[in-house]
Amino acid sequence: MNVLPGFFFYLLSAIILGGAILTITRRNAVHSAIWLIVTLLGVAGIYLNQHAEFLAAVQVLVYIGGIMVLFLFVIMLVNLDEAAKQRQFNHQWTIAVGCALALMAELAYFIVKGRESFRFGDTGTGTLNPDAAVIEFLKSCRDIPGLGPGGFLQPNTELIACALYRDYLLPFEIASVLLLVAIVGAVVMAKKEI
C-alpha cells in the first residue's frame, strides 16, 4: 500500500526537478514559463501526496491560473522574440556554480550525517495546533464524521481555515493589505497615466 505514495514522490520529484532545470535553461521565455507550469503542477502533486489538498488547489489556482498567466501576459506584451536570440546567460557562472556547490556540499553533509541530522520538532501541541476547542468546532461542522486518517491534517480545508482565521488572523489581515498594495502598485507601475 505504501508503494504508491513512494512512486508518486519519485515521479513528481523527477517532474519538478526536470521542469525546474528546463525553466532556467530555456532560451525562449514562453518555454521557460511552460516548464515552470509543469514544475508548479508537480509541486501541487507533491502537496496532494502530503495530504495538503487545499494547498494543492490554491497552488494551481493562484500560481498557474493567476501568476503564470500574468507572466505569459507580460512576456507577450514585451515581445521577447529578439531577446531569445541573444546571449541568455550572464557572466556569473562562477558564482552560480559556487552556490550550487555549496548547497550540494550541504546536501552531501546531510547524507553523510544521516538520519540523526533530521531531528524535527516534536509533534503534538504547539500553541497553534488544533486544540480541543478546534476539534469540537470541526465536529460541529457539517458532514465531518470525525478527524480523518491523516492525523490532525484532515479535514484539510477546515483546519487551514481555523489556522488562517484564528491563529493567523493577523497575518491574514496583513496579507490583505499586502495584496491591496500589490494591486495599487501594479496599476501605478503598468499604467501609462494614472
Binding site: A57, V60, L61, T157
Partner: peptide
C-alpha cells in the same frame, strides 16, 4: 476541495 478544484483547474 471540490469546488476549489474546479475553479483551479478551469483557470
Amino acid at each position: 476541495i471540490g469546488l476549489l478544484f474546479i475553479t483551479a483547474v478551469s483557470s
